[in-house]
Design a binder for these strands. Structure first.
Length: 466
RNA sequence: GGCGGCUUAGCCAAGUGGUAAGGCAGGAGUCUGCAAAACUCCCAUUCCCCGGUUCGAGUCCGGGAGCCGCCUCCA
């Protein structure tokens, strides 16, 4: 089956055809660095990670851009409150964002442009819009003239007439020609303090939406393949981006728009007042593993609302353990028996995994294929019907699948390894002399150290509890 | 109020009009000194509710309920 995505622009699933064969240019909306990102944000970044990894799995060369919004109302407010410069205020959150990406094993994009270092590019777009009759200036503020852009509303399917009829018109709106027009550039006001740029447009700062147009076109060209973000960005943010970009360049902006649904927590909307608003850091402090968080955020198809629960995290950790135990047990299996049955399961796993993700990243289907594979191969292993060659082929498929999932948990080396080895050895000796009381007490001791033992035909194995 | 999305077992979650994937939890076995891991079997006559279309509906249509999102500076 061909790779398909649900394109918001078309409002249906479409075959994915890249502009340039074998390559994809992708823009993913990034964080506003006024705080540490919360798990709802990471739902979106995780979806984009799955997208990126699967596109690479399919053999496409990916060029991904993710913006860092380091100038907006929230960052200005934040730096003023702390009495520091804008750059000083945002830097810890930029650093924190990249730390969090690493924690969740989210692959790095090719470019992370910052809004504050792309002001000239934004100014250029406004100048072009002025030239094209799509923007106007009032008292140093520049606005996009929506009436002059007939395509406005094509992404979000917004009926402008209806909007205007029902629009809440604030008292200060007299300044704009139309209430629907949005700001491209905001003239400096005293509230902005020392946050401003002196440009050909005057002294001020860019509006909400402009950075994404400027930075995407700079790194990906006027017309590129795909743009993603949360559903909340569909309107007005992405709609405005289209208007600005196409209005300035005269070319189609983006072919495929993908929007991921929101995350809810314990069945409720995540909000500070409900006390269920979590940053990634807060969840890690509760001793949940990054891998479990990754699994949970990844395991629901991106267009479905995701219910993030702590029970779900526990279940995710167990599913992940099964996945990793399978991998380790298979790698350690010496290969035995007739063989011959595994090939079918291996081929099926690879095909079904890809089939699921080809269908608009249906991760649930893909994961079902993976767990079917685990059970099928485990059965052959327990029946001694798996040759060394078949084992190696199964491992290869698993490795390929894990380039997309990123579920493999690397066992970190322990500093008390020799102590553990010593205890394991003493237990083995106690077992040999059938002194099970001693053997069991040593096992209890190891359990208390978070070490799990497995007695196998190949001898005793131990591992750190995940 | 307008527009859009969602509602499937105890929990999470797939599902192309043809008879309910997968994970977690739970129950019974096999293996084991006992465990652990693994394997086998069981675990939704039923898919929010009410109508309709159809030989056949979780899937299509109409109505209703609940939850979630968006509705343009600013709040």
């Amino acid at each position: 089956m061909a790779l398909q995505f649900f394109n918001t622009l078309a409002n249906k699933k479409e075959d994915f055809v890249p502009i340039k064969e074998g390559e994809i240019r992708l823009y993913t909306c990034g964080p506003t660095v006024y705080n540490f990102a919360h798990i709802g944000n990471f739902r979106a970044y995780m979806f984009e990670d799955l997208l990126r990894r699967f596109l690479k799995y399919k053999g496409l060369k990916v060029t991904q851009v993710m913006n860092l919004t380091d100038i907006d109302d929230k960052t200005i407010k934040g730096c003023k409150a702390q009495g520091v410069s804008l750059a000083e205020y945002t830097q810890p959150y930029k650093d924190g964002f990249f730390e969090d990406l690493d924690t969740l094993k989210i692959e790095r994009a090719e470019f992370y442009p910052e809004a504050t270092t792309h002001i000239p590019e934004m100014v250029e777009i406004i100048k072009k819009l002025m030239t094209n009759g799509l923007a106007y200036e009032i008292k140093g503020n520049y606005y996009f003239k929506i009436d002059a852009f007939p395509d406005y509303g094509k992404l979000a399917r917004i009926d402008l007439a209806g909007l205007k009829a029902g629009a809440r018109v604030a008292s200060d709106e007299y300044e704009k020609e139309s209430v629907s027009d949005f700001a491209l550039w905001k003239a400096w006001t005293p509230e902005d303090g020392d946050v401003f740029w002196e440009t050909d447009l005057g002294k001020g700062r860019p509006g909400w939406h402009l950075e994404c147009s400027a930075m995407s076109m700079k790194y990906l060209g006027n017309h590129f393949d795909m743009h993603t973000g949360g559903v909340d960005n569909k309107f007005p943010h992405h709609e405005n981006e289209i208007a600005q970009s196409e209005g300035a360049s005269g070319e189609k902006f983006v072919n495929y728009w993908l929007h991921c649904a929101h995350l809810i927590v314990e069945g409720k909307k995540m909000s500070k007042s409900l006390g269920n608003f979590y940053s990634l850091r807060e969840i890690l402090e509760k001793d949940y593993s990054p891998a479990a968080i990754r699994y949970l955020l990844l395991s629901t198809q991106y267009r479905m609302p995701l219910n993030f629960t702590f029970d779900g995290l526990d279940a995710a950790a167990k599913a992940l353990r099964r996945y990793n135990d399978f991998w380790r047990n298979l790698a350690e299996f010496s290969g035995a028996g007739k063989g011959g049955a595994a090939g079918e399961f291996i081929d099926k796993a690879a095909a079904e995994f890809e089939k699921g993700l080809d269908d608009d990243l249906n991760i649930s289907y893909a994961l079902a294929a993976v767990f079917d594979f685990i059970r099928d191969i485990n059965r052959l292993r327990s029946e001694n019907n798996l040759t060394a060659d078949e084992r190696d082929r199964a491992l290869q498929v698993l490795e390929k699948i894990d380039t997309v999932l990123g579920f493999q948990v690397q066992e970190s080396s322990l500093d008390n390894e020799s102590e553990i080895e010593d205890l394991v050895q003493r237990r083995t000796e106690a077992k040999k002399s059938r002194d099970f009381a001693t053997a069991d007490s040593i096992r209890d001791q190891l359990t208390a150290m978070d070490i799990v033992l497995e007695d196998t035909p190949q001898g005793v194995k131990w591992r750190k509890k995940v």
